[in-house]
Amino acid sequence: MQAALPKATGRVRRRRQRTRWFDWMTAPALIVLAVVVGYPIVDAVLVSFTNYSLYTPLHHYVGGVNYSHLSNDPVFWKSLQNTVIFTGVSVAVGLLLGLGLALALERLRGPWRFLRAILLTPWAVPVIVTAFLFEFMFTNPGGIINSLLETAGLIHSPLPWLTSPTWALTAVIIANVWMQAPFFLLIFTAALGGVPDEVIEAARIDRARTWSMIALIKLPYLRNAALVGALLMIIQNFNNFPLIWAMTTGGPAYGTSTLVIYVYQLAFTSFKLGYASAVGVVWLVLLMIITSLFIRTLRSRPA
């Protein structure tokens, strides 16, 4: 089936169509990010090596002084510890609550699905409102939570929820879990919807009972959702500013001061921008390590 060459071609031109490198459609996003995120990040790293202060615009390079100062700064270590506790407990409790609920509510049908929607509402409540709400409920004297606990006989005297450093952290975490457990419910509900019906039916034919069905069939399907949801929430809680700032501004006695709060206070209350940036950079590195660990775990998922 030798084809006769058409007349029009004197010589066959060979112009390969190449795959192009860049798509202009991503340009607006990349430009905005470069200007508003990229530049400030680079700037932050540079500033972290100076004694920059908003008081005196004059500043000079001080080398690693900020970083060495940081290792001897008890507030930094306290804030790091608080960050880890706040994030770890919030995510762990939120994840378990969300998972349990998603499994319990999985078979809601028809109008009952509205129940799930209602349980999701806290996620949509503005953070500032959550902060106000819990501040109000935890207030002492006169807070409803102490009042309820006393009525139920669980405590004998009111707890100093927002005035003791330890209880304040607990209070902030409780508010945070209220706000975030619905997110996990949302993610797990979606992931449960992704378990193929055939697999469930096959398991039923194999006479899997409720618990073995959950443990052996459903949980493996939820692994990625759990990892991704946890990663997202870890990042978000590491960066959680509004809730803590509105409830306690990091107090009392740095009891709820996390790294975000500390950086903000350094930069905008003490105006030590250089030192604040150094703390920020250390924490950025920390965040990147956590993220890469998670991504590695995700990539290694079984096929």
């Binding site: 029009a8 071609t9 112009r15 390969r16 169509q17």
Partner: peptide, 17 residues
Amino acid sequence: ETLTGGEIYFGDTRVTD
């Protein structure tokens, strides 16, 4: 799809590109 080699003609018109 873009081809990685050869030419296509409709009638006498080259339509490769």
